[in-house]
Design a binder for these strands. Structure first.
Ligand SMILES: [Mn+2]
Ligand SMILES: [Mn+2]
Ligand SMILES: [Mn+2]
Ligand SMILES: [Mn+2]
Lengths: 217, 217
DNA sequence: GATTTTTTTTAGATTTACCTAAAAAAATTA
DNA sequence: TAATTTTTTTAGGTAAATCTAAAAAAAATC
């Protein structure tokens, strides 16, 4: 049994690690959880004592198999709840993240199994992120950041790497929702902003927006 | 914004008070929350400072209007989640209480409004308890405890005053579920056990079981 | 009404999750 | 490599929610 706080630390390490064996730095965790490095160090010792992370002083932390399982369980719950909120309760995709941050800590195993079943075992959440199965397994999506596309190339929006309400509302307004087909016209040398074709309409987005849009080519 | 702990104290006072103006004793709260009287006294001071209860030393505590609103909101959420678990996710009535104890603390107002709507604005939960509307209002049910019925009188099971899994499983086994029609044959002078007719079948239940069964005559 | 019992509060600790400020280690730059 | 900057840890402290043990008040009993 972990506290909400412990679960949030494990999830942060999970999301920050690009490869599973990679050590995640103290400051990176502090930034993500909006806390102080000293607090992170305290928690790292505690999680290491519990066998949930490997922690090496001045190097960082990485999840043990037990810690990984816990983290991926939380991610699974988060994403299933987001699907429920959108599909069943008609939330918009920009309204679900904060509620799911609370719901992901509900501990009942039966609840999440039944929810998964009720939703028809969805594979992705409203932001295009894959939903791990109960064993923590899921297929890796293939995508490139919109900023990495060559001018002239086309693709489909399959995900976003930022879940905040203002960002998603902005995309909604532009019509850049999941499944939208786009073609890159030009990437500005000056500020990195991207001009693209969305259903024959020419739109311009800033680099800051483009870098959080994931494209399947 | 209250902590889970504060919410649980307010709910305990709400459930323990028979009339709204009645002061609830420190020990009663401690018993219900499985904590110590000293801890309750600490929390009473805190809740009084926040204006959620009236607290009189050596007398007890009662909810202020603000505290009552908070408490009844939690009860509303608890009962709506129980309906969801049973109606939508096919939980049994004995499996829902502990999960609802966690879910009742999820704070989103939109979530609970949408859930209410999705469920079709149910008026009672799986144990027959009334669900307050968003203003905290609900109709008082009329019922008598099964132990108060005269031999010969009939009625329908409309509720239970105990939500534990073993108790509800026991009732399930006997066929004493919500809506069941019963007639009292005899109440034992010796141990208070009750013999009753349930769909023409004669069954016997102990006083301890009977006192938690609520009958509509 | 005095004595005993029960209930409640106070005093003083503990644990968890934080914090700031200072010290130490590692990484970067000169 | 020496100096500087960045990162991380340690030291020491706070607030919330808990506890035990002792003191005080209220209620029950004699
Ligand atoms: Mn999310
Ligand atoms: Mn998501
Ligand atoms: Mn319940
Ligand atoms: Mn109930």
């Amino acid at each position: 049994m972990q506290s909400f706080t412990e679960e949030n630390y494990l999830k942060a390490i999970y999301h920050l690690a690009e490869q599973p064996e990679q050590y995640v730095q103290t400051n990176a965790i502090a930034d993500r959880l909006q806390t102080k490095a000293a607090s992170v160090t305290d928690m790292m010792k505690k999680l290491a004592d519990k066998g949930l992370i490997d922690y090496v002083r001045y190097t960082g932390a990485r999840l043990t198999p037990a810690g990984h399982q816990t983290a991926v369980d939380i991610v699974r719950k988060h994403r299933l709840w987001e699907v429920f909120l959108v599909e069943t309760l008609n939330f918009k995709w920009d309204e679900v993240h904060d509620v799911a941050e609370e719901l992901e800590h509900i501990s009942s195993v039966l609840l999440i199994e039944r929810l998964d079943e009720f939703l028809g075992f969805p594979r992705t959440d409203p932001h295009g992120d894959p939903i791990p199965d109960k064993h923590g397994k899921f297929e890796k999506r293939s995508f490139v950041k919109l900023t990495k596309l060559e001018p002239g190339s086309s693709g489909t929006v399959t995900g976003v790497s930022e879940h905040s309400t203002p960002f998603l509302k902005h995309l909604e307004k532009l019509g850049l929702t999941l499944g939208a087909g786009i073609t890159v016209n030009e990437i500005s040398e000056f500020d990195g902003s991207v001009e693209l074709l969305l259903e024959n309409k020419k739109i311009n987005i800033s680099r800051d927006v483009a870098k959080h849009i994931l494209i399947n080519t």
